[in-house]
Nucleic acid binder design. Structure first.
Lengths: 336, 336
DNA sequence: ATGAAAGCGCTAACAA
DNA sequence: TTGTTAGCGCTTTCAT
């Protein structure tokens, strides 16, 4: 790779390397004339500063890491869109790491970030993460971290979430309003912030409406499709719920498939509502009632905070949650 | 960021920097004893080599760029999964760039890659890209480029595609078999490789079955949802096709929504089949017949070739197409 | 207004 | 077997 570097520009212009460097950053002790010459040549040769060399001096890489559990997931792709929109605007590069819901991979990734590869980290933790020392170690090294969606509550930084408790409460309440009595919750790992909040919202809604929650109706699903199918099938067959509130889209999809298989009518036999960012929710058979998360905005907000920290020397990431509301959209799957 | 570097290790161990460096890469002229000491301390302090400093010497960043038009798209997320699986296995980092179907952004990204930020590029070009000089310039600098899905036919490198022509031919043939006479094609930009191939396959299938293709039934859709809706609506209302073959998922979704709106029955009034990697194709109302692309495998294959080139000094990327077949899955939307 | 030179962390050629 | 040193491309302080 024979690239154009400052040295070459300097040679061609009969200037010193230092002068060229300063001209490129528009330093005020370089004459306009020289600047013009330098800029013109730089443009002509498509000069790009070497980011690695810059890093060594400036200690910044203009790169951020995004660590997420998976990517074939509408929530996360929309969040990435939000993140990328901010990154592109500010000239940052985005490295994507997929933990595949595996704590050990997540730890391995963070280890790779200990030395300058990125300037900051956006993370939504894996469902098997219960220990956050790998992230604390990163933070101790001075790397800013911002959480989104699946956050660590007791971490001194910004955490961008949606109103999981409230939305779950509304989802369960909606099922009750539509006449459901035996409402099941397909929960995601209770060690996740979103898992416990959504479950709590569900439980509270039942209680507030005089329904005693049954342990047999609160199913903690997994990351394994096959196992989830078994769990949900058992639920449908043995517990005969008349309402299902799915904590994530994947569980709702499995629910649809199983109802199909078992000959259960939605919403006649069982009504379903789910946290979901599915574009085709309204085209499903029947259309799926959803709690739609502000995925793009969450990504955007998380990235904005991180980049603000990176760009403004006096700005510290506050220890606070930024909550952006979800929307409940009732469709046919919860119709009376 | 006060990180552990080689200097610090050397000081703590009373060794020279060079010795430590060699011990870390397991050089054979360092004693086992020294190696053990070095490795132990490195592990204890969680030493990570600074990638930027390494780059300056070794001219490799262990990073690849993935440039794609968009990410909220099942094909691309699956492809990224494939790419990431290879990258993770080989210890490479993946930077994602989203061109949002905009040629100028694509060019801007490639400009940023001219100086060592990445070792190689995987790209699926934007639908507004007709000029490939930005990519030739990159290649001229010695950066290996591998295309996938939306390729540039006349580019001297590996191009990973699916059998677009053949699959389109099959899709159109399938509609004919199901009794369709007036078959429309919702085409994607004809300047894209996939756009023209899919259209050609469609046209050939009609001709081979004694149907004269009508220009009014070949609609080139756009990147703008609103405009597409108008185009498809006009098609449905004015041309009354009894079959639609959509080149990409998004057009089929729009078709579903419009049939709903216009009171057209699928598959009674109009049958629909689409290139699509939608997970919920079978849950739509009615379930959608698809040509499902081997997205994961395509990403995996493209990344494998690129990394092979990066890792093996004597391997040159051949000027060839690697074609992985798609599968036609007939569902209710094309039922007789 | 311009240039010389040090140094960021690392590797590798060469010396000891 | 270990150490010294030059240099990757850049920024920045300090001369000139």
């Amino acid at each position: 790779m024979e690239s154009v570097n400052i040295k070459k520009l300097a040679q061609l212009l009969n200037l010193s390397i230092a002068t060229v460097s300063k001209a490129l950053r528009d330093s005020y002790d370089i004459s306009q004339e020289t600047k013009d010459k330098v800029l013109a040549l730089a443009k002509e040769l498509n000069y790009q500063p070497n980011p690695h060399a810059s890093f060594l001096r400036k200690q910044n890489s203009k790169t951020i890491a995004v660590i997420i559990p998976e990517i074939a997931n509408n929530y996360f792709t929309l969040a990435i869109n939000g993140i990328e929109s901010v990154a592109q605007e500010k000239g940052y590069h985005v490295i994507i790491y997929l933990s595949h819901e595996d704590f050990h991979r997540e730890v391995a990734f963070t280890k790779l970030l200990h030395t300058g590869r990125v300037d900051g980290v956006l993370i939504s933790v894996s469902s098997t993460t219960t220990d956050y020392t790998h992230l604390h170690q990163l933070q101790d090294k001075g790397l800013p971290i911002v959480f989104f969606d699946r956050v660590c509550e007791h971490f001194n930084t910004v955490k961008v979430t949606t109103d999981d408790y409230q939305s779950a409460y509304l989802a369960a309440s909606h099922l009750i309003e539509q006449g459901c009595k035996r409402i099941a919750h397909l929960a995601i790992s209770q060690s996740l912030s979103i898992g416990s909040k959504r479950a709590k919202g569900y439980l509270q809604a039942l209680q507030d409406n005089g329904i005693t929650p049954a342990a047999s109706l609160l199913i903690e699903c997994t990351n394994d499709d096959e196992q989830d199918v078994k769990l949900i099938r058992d639920l449908l067959e043995q517990q005969q719920p008349d309402g299902i509130f799915a904590a994530i889209e994947r569980y709702a999809i499995a629910g649809y498939e199983l109802c199909d298989l078992l000959g259960l009518n939605i919403p006649g036999d069982v009504k379903i509502i789910s946290f979901s960012n599915l574009q085709t929710a309204s085209l499903l058979n029947p259309s799926l009632s959803t709690i739609t998360q502000p995925a793009f905005e969450m990504g955007r907000e998380a990235a904005s905070m991180l980049l603000k920290k990176l760009e403004k020397k006096n700005f510290q990431l506050p220890d606070e949650s930024i909550v952006i509301q979800s929307k409940l959209i009732a469709r046919k799957s919860t119709m009376k």
